[in-house]
């Protein structure tokens, strides 16, 4: 975890240059995706560190309220992950996850958030490399979208805009 990834409050001491990195929340199921992240770790596969992981027993538990709460609190992206179909520890939990995810996606779309800020991925316990790949890809995608407009962390959004302006000034 780098200092860039800390909350704005803890970042206050850092003065130059103001930069922005996305804050991403990753929901991972205990049996596959979380273990997949572990595999990535023990295999020493490098990936971007701008996410916080929340472990749940099953991806079926991840109801719209969880994801929407993350966005409300200022997450720039949310990744929901679970076992591949047929691999679910609870037989059909990930099928429930899909149902919940569809609902969430509909509401997120209505709210006017970019759809790229939300993703559903299946990652098994053995797929450490895939975990790293998904994280890198998703982080890049969210970084391209910039800070969430709904971000409660207005401070970091402002500092991002400032850095963008100062970069433009420097270039010209």
């Amino acid at each position: 975890m780098t200092s860039k990834n800390l909350s704005p409050k803890r970042q206050r001491g850092v003065t130059s240059p103001p930069s922005w990195e996305p804050s991403i929340v990753v929901f991972a199921c205990n049996w596959c995706s979380y273990a997949g992240a572990d595999t990535a770790g023990v295999s020493r596969i490098q990936h971007q560190p701008h996410f916080r992981m929340i472990r749940v027993m099953c991806s079926g538990r991840i109801q719209p309220g969880f994801v929407l709460r993350a966005f409300e609190k200022g997450a720039d992206g949310v990744l929901v992950s679970g076992c591949h179909f047929g691999d679910c520890h609870y037989i059909f939990g990930n099928e429930r996850a899909v149902e919940q995810f569809e609902k969430t996606k509909n509401v997120v779309k209505l709210l006017g958030l970019e759809e790229g800020r939300l993703r559903l991925e299946w990652i098994s316990a053995a797929e450490g490399a895939r975990f790293a790949e998904v994280i890198n890809e998703f982080t890049d995608q969210v970084r391209k979208l910039g800070p969430s407009k709904l971000s409660a962390r207005k401070l970091s959004a402002i500092s991002y805009q400032l850095s963008a302006i100062s970069q433009r000034v420097r270039r010209s």
Binding site: Q63, P64, G65, R69, L111, G112
Partner: peptide, 18 residues
């Protein structure tokens, strides 16, 4: 509903999106 609807309302209160 896990507070989903309250979250939606609060996000609307924050605003910023279309």
């Amino acid at each position: 509903h896990g507070g989903a609807l309250q979250s939606v309302m609060r996000m609307m209160a924050t605003g910023g999106t279309e």
